[in-house]
Amino acid sequence: MSAVSQPALKRKSISYSKWGYIFLIPFFTAFIIFTLIPLANTFYNSFFENYAKGLEDVGPNYIGFQNYVKIFTKESLDKYLLNTLIMWILGFVPQIVVSLLLAVWFTDLNLKIKGQGFFKTVIYMPNLIMASSFAMLFFVLFSDAGPINSLLETLGIGKYRFLTYAPGTRGLVALMNFMMWFGNTTILLMSGVMGIDTALYEASQIDGANGWQTFWRITIPLLRPIMAYTLITSMIGGLQMFDVPQILTKGSGTPNRMSMTVIMKLNNYLGTSYNYGMGGALSVIMFVITAILSLLVFRALTRESRENAKQRKALAKGGVRL
C-alpha cells in the first residue's frame, strides 16, 4: 500500500466500507459452520460420557471433567504425547542441522555451489509426496522380507526387523519426517540468510574472522527469528503427526503402542471405538497446546508487520515512496 495514498483513501472510502464486510461474509460463514460450531461441539462433548459398547450406545451422560482425568490415568495420553514428541525431535534435530548447513552452503559466494536449481528441486520433492503413499512405500521396502533387509543380508550386516522394535519404527517415522521437511526448511532458512546485510560479512572478514566464527557470531544470531518460526511451526505440524505412523503400523502404533501418536489415538476414538467423550477431551487438550504455540507464531508475525509499518512511516517521512 502506498503511504502517500493512505490519507486519500480514508477520506473517500466511507461509502465503500460496507463492501469490506460483504467480502468477508463467505470466509466467516464457512469458518463458523465448518470450524467454530464443530469446535464448540467438540468442547461440549468432552464433558459427557458417550461411547459405543458393542451395539449399545452409552450416554451421553454429563460427567464434568472425568474424561480429562481418565484420559491421562486410564488411556495414557501422556505416553502418546511423549511418543509424538520423541518422533518429532528425532526428525527435527537432523532436519534443522542439515537445513542450516545447506542454507549456508547455497548462499556462500566463495563456495559457488553449481546445480543449485537441481539440488533444491530434488531435496524439496519428498515434501509433495502423499504421506500415506510414502509410508506404504517405506513399509514394503523395510518389511521383514523386503528389499532393504535382503540388501542388509547381502552386505553381511544381517536382517533387522524394523517394525518389530520401537527404535526401528520410530526411526523410520523420523527418517520420513526428516526427508519430507528438510528441503522446505532449507529454502526457508536460505531466504533468511540472504536477508542478512552482506556488509556484516565484509566487516567481519576484514576483522579477520574465519568462516566458523562468522557462522556462529553473525549468521546464527541473525537467523534466530526465522529459526524460532521454523521450530514452532514444525512443532505444530509435529503434533499433527498421523499419516506416516498410522499407515506404517496399520493404526496400531506397534510395537506395544510405542509409535502411537496423539492424532492416531483421536482417529481411534472417532473411527473405531466411537468414544466421543474421550475424543472430545483429547481434542480440547490438543487445542490448548496448539493455541499456545499459535500465539507465539502470531506474535512473531504481527511484530514483523508492526516493524514494517514503522519502517514505512520513517521512509515516507523522508519522501521515499514504496
Binding site: I37, P38, T42, T233, I263, Y276, G280, S294
Partner: peptide
C-alpha cells in the same frame, strides 16, 4: 488479527464436531 490467530490451529482439533455435523 483473528484470522492470523486461527491460522495455525489444526483441523484435527474440531474433527469430532465436524464429523457429527
Amino acid at each position: 488479527k483473528f484470522i492470523l490467530l486461527i491460522m495455525m490451529v489444526p483441523s484435527q482439533v474440531s474433527a469430532l464436531g465436524f464429523v457429527k455435523l
